[in-house]
Amino acid sequence: MDLTPSADQRDLRAGVRDFLAGRWTPDRLRAASASPSGSAAGSAGLDPDDWKALGELGVFALGLPEERGGAGLGLVDAAIVFEELGRALVPGPLTATFLAAGLVPGADDGTSAVTALDLGDPTLVAEHLGSSAQVVLVDDGLWLLPADALAAVPLDAPLDPLTPVWRVTDPPEGGRLIGTGADAERWRTRAAVLTSALQVGVAQGALDLAVRYAKERVQFGRAVGSFQAVKHLLAESLARVDLARAATWTAALAVDGPADRPADGGAAEAVSSAKVLADDAAAANGRCCVQVHGGMGFTWEVAAHLYLKRAWLLETCWGGADEHARRLAATL
């Protein structure tokens, strides 16, 4: 039993972190999210070069076997990479494109973005539809549809300014069957783990930003981070992200293979636990980040809101915390 990253996994994390730090700088994030009222399609369309760069880095093909151009790595390795993507607030249909690698041509190397639509959800909304070539419909099977075949309208002023969203106006029909009911279940499970990993990253990024500010900002002649009232908010944020990360790694390992008691229950319980804790960590840490910034935290220019808004977006993906809590309750 070992729940610490191996040397290879630490290298993987450092490599992705370095790459993203050079590309997704605070200035770039600020520019990309510049227009609060801009239309979805206009303000935050994906740059195909960014997507290709992620593909070249191996982000999407990570889990494919080496003979198919991948790295043959497991879901926990993907979780490590996705935490970094979340921490850097990288936009795009990351989870869907990762899961589509090997199923949808062009997904694995980042030559095309693939989004997904969970038909189990009563409200059909798709992210990044305008930048995606294909959409995977996840129901009691997996169906592939060209993105422009979906009847959908972009929503103005998307909550997360880096994530344009489209409301689907007519229930989609047809498409090419690319996976069975079991494949769809597998998709949902893995998507929940990867979304949890993104949330852990969002939670960590929000904490990092808040801690940096608390060390710099002086009031009453002292750094505000020296006050226990502020310190304890940040300590709570740290506790949340540590717990969520351990739960997410555990879920990823449990999904990938046999484990001795991943949770009180099996892999499904471990996944639901991770999503509950990661959603909570991201949203609460985002809120903490805004609060610690005081009035500046309420301005568009400080990135605090970007973490919180991304957290609020991701908590709706692949089962919200309440939904996963109900699933856990059913196993008690």
Partner: peptide, 17 residues
């Protein structure tokens, strides 16, 4: 049920930790 489920998540998270 939701409260119990959230606490179950917490217990599982503590195991992971």
């Amino acid at each position: 049920r939701r409260d119990a489920g959230r606490l179950a998540a917490e217990v599982n998270g503590l195991w992971a930790l």
